[in-house]
Amino acid sequence: MSTKTVNAPARPGAGVAVHQKNADGGKRPRRPGGSRLSREGGFASAFSVNALLILGCAYMVLPVLWLFFAATKDTADLYGTAAYSLGRFALFENIAAVAGQDGGIFFRWMGNSVLYAAFGAVLGGLISVMAGYAFDKFQFRGKKTWFAFVLLGVLIPNTATVLPMYLLASVAGITNTVWAILIPVLCNPFGVYLARVYSSSYVPDETLEAARVDGAGPIRSFFSLGLPMMMPGFITIGLFQFVGIWNNFMLPLVMLQDQQLLPVSVGISIWQGYSIPQPEFSPMVITASFLSVIPLLAAFIMLQRFWKSGLTAGSVK
């Protein structure tokens, strides 16, 4: 009963279908707008609505833009010139400083982040998709109870289980190894929930029934029919998983001590610690932050279709 609301916006088919129709933003046939402009006091209201939208977007964009401008400045200009102006263009020197610090450990951190996030996105995504598919397509005893466990997993915040995980991992002796990160990132209850929604809206029961009549076993039908049909859902789940792992801070902070194993989020926070007493470190910290944001920004811009569908199918996190 408590699951009711969680389910509401993602009624099988409803959410995803809506997304497909509106995948490209405001492209749907608009309500007759042109004729209303004159009737509604027209220009003034159009102006104020759009002005407010621009104001809101400015709040969202300016801090990111600041990061870009600041990354191009040396220490003197960072503290000496106006924030949104170009000083002496020192971006490449800053990048060189980032690359040179501690023997190029920054790129190692980036590589670690990519490894952890890609591993979790692909393998963790597949695990979630399989489970979600099973919850949608198979009948078995105790289905409701098992799914309640999944929802419980959705409701407990990540950070509440990080310390318990650390405590258990230290007994198992795997703290400060990659396993301390790679095992937890496979667990994505929300992915299971999403996959169930995708499965019921993308994979028609008739197709599976036809495959069964033709003699295909359930595993074969999953890999040759179900999974390809759910591919957009798989990509969406994987994308959110990737971003979640890339952004994760507390888990690696708690689990890892070896600098060589850190993901970029924790690495940069260590550098930030240096820059407080020594402001000359600031351009390096800022440039490193800027570099670490680029892959995610690129992914989000290129994969717009997928994250929008993920948000629609059940409002993530």
């Binding site: 963790g124 695990i127 979630s128 399989m130 489970a131 598919y133 099973a134 919850f135 397509k137 198979f138 009948q139 078995f140 005893r141 098992w146 466990f149 999944v150 997993g153 407990i156 289980t161 995980m165 095992i183 937890p184 496979l186 667990c187 209850p189 299971v192 599976l208 069964r212 076993g217 359930p218 595993i219 039908s221 999953f222």
Partner: peptide
Amino acid sequence: GTGGRTAALFLIPFFTVFTVAM
């Protein structure tokens, strides 16, 4: 194809990591 045993095959990976990680 819709029975408990196949379902288990699909669910075991998730519930294993769920048990270990949560």
